[in-house]
Write a protein that binds this DNA or RNA. Structure first.
Lengths: 236, 236
DNA sequence: CGATATGTTGAATACGGTCAAAAAGTGTGG
DNA sequence: CCACACTTTTTGACCGTATTCAACATATCG
């Protein structure tokens, strides 16, 4: 049995406090497991659940009328998905790309927990604020960087976020995204992602093979992408 | 004298509740006025203030090393800007494009207010969640829509947000953005924004002249842009 | 009225997209 | 363990949307 606050606290990409107990008593969180490549919830569904990623990778995206999709968030462990004021149809879909363990809480329940205040309310607000920063940088990335620097920036961001969660070391991490996924994150085509990764590899900047990313020349990557990890900070 | 909750509540693009009083007593909010085209705070500044737009238009953006910028948010009245967990240098700049009235609150003060819970904490969380939705749609817009549909989508979004705030009627609203600003919102060049607006005008879809937007064929615009205003809802 | 910002247009270019085909990798069942 | 199907990656040739650069027109403001 795990309270929501404990959950939030115990997922280091998102929240850092490691001791203490919350005042809010959730009924206890039990995780559901979704198979890799299954859809957790679908755009247009009329359900109320808020998801908390326990482990695994997921993608949050919107499907467009012409069959394309745009991924708007790449939640790692600890992320809260689907919190909002109103009821009504979901605006985005959530897919598991690896086996995925998620908790779900109802909108009402989380709302009431925020109303109750305390560290949980703070953590929720902090989490949402940090996500705002990540999304803002996503906008900058797609809006104003070219294919190479855009791709480099995203892979640097992933490395930082994963290393906070202890899932990356020496610039090396497992990344289950396909080039097609990457394209839908970066607002490019899969073909061009392929060519861009080739360029990065040929310039000895990074390699992305068989689900593993290796940053080779991090310094040069950071410079060319204008990467400043301030927006990913979660400490203090 | 105005409490923060009253403030949040009284700005209809962002929050809807209109009656009742908060439990949190802010020291009272007094607005500062910034002249059109002045910079309210600058990326890299080491201050803690959180801004609440009282009236006027502002732009939140990041400057890149090559001199370009990307606007990540177009705050209207009622928006909260700069809330986050950590101290440290600001990640984005905020500029006034019209004369602008803003309140500011310290990060610590707002954090404590959220800790105290109640409707204020809820409103803050709801606000952040809604902003997340708007930013997600911004990502979709830049990542997967072409110049025309992208521009149309943004102008439809503005119309909806402004009409919620009572600042648009019959598809007509004042919009103080220059084509250059629009370009920095949409991830395009100013030249191409100009051509795109010309196309929209020639197709009798909308006009944007002298700071006024007039949606002419809203139905067609909505269809071509795939505009679904669900993410802008604030009611219930 | 002059200065500066904003809007408009044209011509040339480039970056990334499209379409098509093949190679390499992955997983499943026999 | 292999055969087969399917997904993912890779490459080539061609194309189109949006950028770049440059010039000029029009607004706006002191």
């Amino acid at each position: 049995m795990q309270t929501l606050l404990q959950f939030i606290r115990s997922h280091p990409d998102r929240a850092v406090l490691e001791n203490g107990w919350g005042k809010n008593n959730f009924s206890g969180l039990s995780a559901k497991i979704y198979k890799a490549h299954s859809v957790v919830c679908r755009q247009g569904d009329d359900d109320d659940r808020i998801f908390l990623i326990k482990s695994g990778w997921a993608l949050l995206y919107r499907d467009l009328l012409n069959g394309e999709r745009q991924i708007v968030d790449t939640p790692l462990q600890g992320e809260i998905i689907g919190f909002r004021r109103t009821e009504g149809p979901r605006f985005e879909s959530l897919s598991a790309i690896t086996d995925l363990a998620v908790f779900d809480v109802s909108r009402k329940e989380l709302s009431e927990a925020v109303f109750a205040g305390g560290e949980l309310a703070q953590e929720v607000a902090y989490f949402l604020a940090r996500l705002n920063g990540i999304m803002a940088e996503h906008i900058v990335n797609i809006g104003r960087r070219n294919a190479i620097t855009r791709t480099a920036h995203f892979l640097l961001e992933l490395e930082k976020r994963l290393s906070i969660a202890g899932l990356s070391a020496q610039g090396r991490y497992a990344c289950p995204l396909t080039q097609h996924d990457l394209a839908d994150i970066l607002g490019m085509t899969a073909v061009h992602v392929n060519r861009t990764l080739r360029e990065l590899r040929r310039a000895d900047l990074l390699s992305f093979k068989a689900g593993k990313v290796q940053l080779i020349d991090r310094k040069k990557l950071v410079k060319m992408a204008g990467f400043d990890d301030e927006y990913l900070r979660y400490d203090l």
